[in-house]
Design a protein around this nucleic acid. Structure first.
Lengths: 335, 335
DNA sequence: TATATTTATGAAAGCGGTTTCAAGCGTCTG
DNA sequence: CAGACGCTTGAAACCGCTTTCATAAATATA
């Protein structure tokens, strides 16, 4: 299988120079005589030389790898951020290595270990559940960036949207359409995002002097089935409502299905709004209103910030603002 | 930032043994006296030692990295396969490094280069467009596995579903429901998958003695907008039809929206079937029928096969079969 | 022209592990 | 009891590249 690997030494011999010179040409670290430079480049091409990044990593001290930890490949928000990071790194000398936490703290921690062992130069962690303390300790060793998460003591390394505001905006949007009985399907309650969104919801109600009805809130799990269950449960409680605010699009999709099953018209009888604005929201019938987080952009921003961090530049992470993609699943409250 | 890294040498000193012994303990390559073994392990724990995988990669000759190339993070089929691979590798000593081809041949090739440079021990390529020749050359150097792609000369390294059969089954399913005017929204025509699915469609028509009407076929792009465009275009041609078979779910979603916009009832007037059975299909209104490819399982299979390949075992890649997830977007043809 | 300064280059010393090799030691065998 | 054998162990070589350091050559300065 493996024909013998060609090394920098081979190139050196072929071009009649020393290893050092080859290295210098390849990395542009020191000027090298034109002729020799040419010769080296030619040899590289001829022999189809591919530097061993382990060797250079070892010798040079930096791996040119950015570790990226996502929470779940296949989940809209995380995927978009990841894409953003990768997009931003493409074309630079850095490449990302990805680990998936699959929503599991244990696996998440192991993933981080793997990344450290791989000598990543920097770490971008998207969401997740790792302890604040642990993160701070990590931050002492490596440049680290947290996306979609706000951690005290690491504020200047966090890039996140204001989840309270998301909850508030979404709810306010519905209230302004005249809705007063608004269901909220929350996310996983251990997630700080979920809690913040819920608080935003509560605040908007409060502001509009709408009394809080516990029976209109259902603890979901950011997925389709829990959206279905939410509607069925709340209907089962005999509650009346004219709007549903789901903590993400997947649970909104679930809610949509349950409403359909129960013969409830959207938006005629009930308005529906989700969060994430994932691609599919556009293709629901009717197209679904959703709060859009600038996920891809956040990924790019994080990637660039990491690049700056690695150049020891100062970075500044702007607070991300959200906007509502208004479509047709929301309408004025029925009389 | 970086406090001084601890190396195997530090462990050796702390445990009063030689580097060699430490290495042996860590890798279980040679029996080591109980006491020393303990001492080493303790030192590792105390000093919180993390082996530098660059060094071991360099010295040992294998990187314990599997390179995975996907075509588009965020795309259902690719994501699922990727998840499968990652899932299968989790807990082994191998870790995956992911590159995204973003549907672009150039970027795809660069991605492969990156992986090679990183000394991956094996390569799993999901889909994509890289030349047969190039792949064969790669296969001479590294264990390679192709998922969702069939390449002559590398048959025993390919794990794919029979796309012709998918097209055939989907179409036949519609025909058996009594449909005769069946629209097909194809995938990107340069993709072999698209062509095979189209051929399956044609074959099913032929078998049922339904004359082929070119006007019912639209070249799509595997995405939502092209699904919308397809329906609008075909409607614009003044064509009548009672069923739509889209080459993937995203384009089916697009078609669904266009039908809705045109006031055409699904499945009352038109039946709709997609391919991929992505999660959201379940939550369309009505829930959408789709051909399910065992994507996650394929990822796992590929991962395991790679592990075997690396142990120099023989591998066998079974042909993957598909099944139709029948939901409510398909019904008997109207009279 | 002699001396100081700059520049290109090669030799060699790492980087942090793994692995070969040979030595040291205890045990087994004839 | 000597020699053979098997185990554990440390020293040292090595993996392929970067980088420091010293040298030689070229250029500038006096």
């Amino acid at each position: 299988m493996d024909q013998k690997k060609i090394t920098i030494q081979d190139i050196a011999e072929c071009a009649n120079v020393s290893k050092s010179t080859v290295s210098r040409v390849l990395n542009n670290t020191t000027p090298v005589d034109g002729k020799k430079r040419e010769a080296v480049l030619k040899a590289v091409k001829d022999l189809n030389f591919e530097p061993n990044s382990f060797a250079s990593g070892l010798a040079g001290g930096n791996s040119m790898i950015i570790g990226v930890q996502t929470q779940k490949i296949g989940s809209s928000f995380y995927d978009l951020v990841t894409q953003g990071v990768i997009h931003c790194l493409t074309g630079t000398r850095y490449s990302p290595i990805l680990v998936d936490g699959v929503w599991d703290k244990e696996i998440e921690l192991k993933g981080i270990d793997t990344l450290l062992r791989r000598q990543v130069d920097g770490l971008i962690i998207i969401g997740g559940d790792i302890d604040k303390k642990h993160l701070i300790r990590l931050a002492e060793k490596k440049p680290i960036l947290l996306v979609g998460r706000e951690v005290e003591g690491l504020q200047d390394r966090c890039l996140y949207v204001d989840n309270f505001d998301i909850g508030y905006q979404a709810t306010k949007f519905l209230i302004e359409l005249g809705h007063r009985a608004i269901v909220h399907i929350t996310g996983i309650k251990s997630h700080q995002d979920s809690v913040r969104r819920l608080n935003g919801y509560l605040h908007a109600l409060d502001e509009a002097k709408i009394p809080y009805d516990k029976g209109l809130v259902f603890e979901g799990a950011f997925d389709g089935p829990s959206g279905v269950e939410a509607i069925d449960t709340i209907l089962g409680r005999g509650k009346k409502f004219t709007a549903v605010f789901a903590a993400n699009d997947m649970s909104a999709f679930g809610a949509r299905l349950a409403l359909y099953r129960n013969g409830i018209d959207v938006p005629g009888e009930v308005s529906l709004i989700g969060i994430d604005d994932q691609t599919e929201a556009t293709y629901m019938t009717p197209p679904m209103t959703s709060v859009r987080q600038p996920a891809f952009k956040m990924g790019v921003t994080a990637g660039n910030a990491m690049l700056d961090l690695l150049k020891h530049k100062e970075i500044e992470l702007p607070k991300q603002s959200v906007q509502i993609s208004v479509r047709e699943s929301t309408a004025k409250a029925p009389l």
